[in-house]
Design a protein around this nucleic acid. Structure first.
Lengths: 339, 339
DNA sequence: GTGTCCGGAGACAACGTTGGCACCCGCTCG
DNA sequence: CGAGCGGGTGCCAACGTTGTCTCCGGACAC
């Protein structure tokens, strides 16, 4: 019942061989025309081009890259969650930079799961990406990447450093950001400052929290463990934690939320309340200026992280063998008053 | 000066041939072990596995896919702007669905540029993606995709229909959303309703605007061309347009913004003003609930667009040849009152 | 007229992998 | 005791492309 070459039913992409047959030239001549080699008789080139457009031929880059060696003109990007605007900004900037280098971006989300991260990155290596951009999951160990790096797949870490591995890294100045936020609140006269944090296994959280605690201590603000909540990974968890703090006997007069998700949670908890609680959030977002609260944020250029990471990665791909670099993107406190 | 096989300097990924040599077996036996073919002597299999981990071998999927036929276990996603939360949600959902089908996602941004869209999609076809998910640029013509589709690369359109092409499409119910928004405002007693729109070459804008005008007419609200502004593609443009309307002799008492960027612009223009203007925006966003305005939104499940699109695409990839389908994702009016 | 050179075209191998086939060996059954 | 069988292994071709080499014919110089 099967009609192997009955045509029409089972579409198959034409190959250079097909083009060569139709144009009445050799395979190699088709290759030359397709690759714009100048030494081809214009008449033959014309026949080839006609055949190409008649058949709808399009060169198979998989085969081409296989032959060409170990480049796929593809880089992999692994982030926690594509839908988070912070990471989406990184992804957009990295994709743009890659495109300018004739490279496309494979993206995937780790969902903060170390095992998933591992599986996805190794999968990308199997596909012979030219390099990897990675926002590591909080508790990931990256020794497993060493063989891949040694065998020529460079890796650049974004937003968080690798564990048990030396590699290029682009970080935010978390310590400065944490300090700026707390100093701002202290200067405004606050003495009971609540801090809400995601999992401390995430390095950015640990660094921001440490900087905040240090700044509080330096300012002579008494240490209040009841005003520090961590392990909050979702918006509702953050909201619940803030609500608990506010309902306690000595509620905070200000809150420092260590990332954008936590800031949303805090906003949710504060919404509808009358207490004049001041809120500072790490990570800026588009609608921050329109909030009814005095929402000050620790801001930085998220796209710069993606762009810079891509730049470092492409240097490695081009053969740079110098020792790993660490780039720190600066933070800036954007102070906003109530509307 | 060059030392071809001096080792260490020029990293090269080991191949099955290398593994076979180290393990002292044939190439084919390595292939069997790597692919878990059961009929291999356990002792040989052990030697192969030892060699694999000694060399750090990882199968080259490019070569594998070339041999296997025309599948790359990759699909392409083209959207307007990865950094826009609306599209980021689509991308995240599509990536997740793809992953569940052992497929990875190549993402790129068209930046609403038809020529760039064309170049990127054809580039993806050259890489032999198994299929394409496309949010078309406003003024794109898609005839150029017909040969690709005929030759076995299915395409599913998201959010906006294709032009001059028949293909699966996942759309939002723009007409219902536009109607709901206007009916809500009319019911609240508004008679001067400003509408701000992006380029009308974008089909979603045209549909939403048409539905809004129709609803206004049905409600007996007099047509007011001075309260309709279109061609606004950036936040500042939208803000300026709204400011102009508000400063006119007969300012609107309500505004309907046809997408999330325009809503942000409107918020910017309204910020600091005292007029009690009611705002309705198409597209929900995370912080909408915290706004000091009565910010009602036309909401829908953005992730569902990505998921549904991916589902249709994988059916096609699996060989579905039925006639193209159109899926409409419903909208819902989320009414919010001032805080 | 002959040797040389050069532009233009094709044959062939190779990239790394897998499917198809042939082969070898030890066993069982007639 | 020989044919048949089947598990285990290896050889070869093929996927679609490009680099290298060779070949052919014409122009040019001697």
């Amino acid at each position: 019942m099967s009609t192997p070459s009955a045509g029409g039913d089972e579409p198959r992409r034409p190959t250079m061989t097909d083009v060569a047959r139709v144009a009445g030239v050799s395979l190699k001549t088709v290759s030359r025309v397709v690759n714009n080699v100048p030494t081809v008789d214009p008449e033959l080139a014309g026949r080839v081009l006609a055949a190409v457009s008649e058949l709808g031929f399009r060169r198979n880059d998989m085969a081409r890259n296989l032959r060409a060696g170990s480049t796929s003109a593809t880089v992999g990007l692994l982030i926690e969650d594509l839908a988070n605007p912070f990471y989406a900004g990184i992804a957009a900037a990295a994709a743009q930079y890659a495109l300018e280098h004739d490279t496309m971006l494979i993206t995937a989300s780790s969902e903060e799961d170390a095992e998933r991260e591992r599986a996805l990155l190794l999968e990308m290596c199997q596909r012979r990406v030219d390099g990897l951009l990675v926002v590591p999951a909080g508790d990931a160990d990256h020794v497993y990447l060493r063989p891949e790096i040694e065998r020529g797949t460079p890796v650049v870490f974004l937003d968080r450093p690798p564990r048990n591995l030396l590699a290029d890294t682009v970080l935010i100045d978390n310590a400065a950001g944490g300090r700026q936020a707390v100093e701002h609140l202290v200067a405004a006269g606050h003495e009971r400052i609540g801090v809400i944090s995601d999992w401390l296994s995430i390095s950015t959280m640990a660094e921001r929290l440490a900087a905040a605690e240090q700044a509080l201590e330096r300012a002579g603000v008494p240490y209040r463990p009841d005003l520090i909540a961590y392990g909050l990974h979702t918006v509702p968890e953050a909201a619940a934690a803030v609500a608990r703090m506010l309902d306690a006997p000595e509620p905070p007069t200000a809150i420092f939320a260590l990332n954008n998700r936590l800031t949303l949670g805090a906003l949710g908890a504060l919404n509808g309340r009358t207490e004049p609680v001041e809120l500072v959030g790490f990570d800026d977002f588009e609608t921050a200026a329109f909030m009814p609260w005095r929402l000050t944020v620790v801001s930085y250029d998220a796209r710069e992280i993606g762009r810079m990471g891509a730049e470092l990665l492409f240097k490695r791909i081009a053969g740079d063998r110098s020792r790993p670099r660490k780039v720190i993107v600066p933070t800036e406190l954007v102070v906003r008053s109530a509307g």
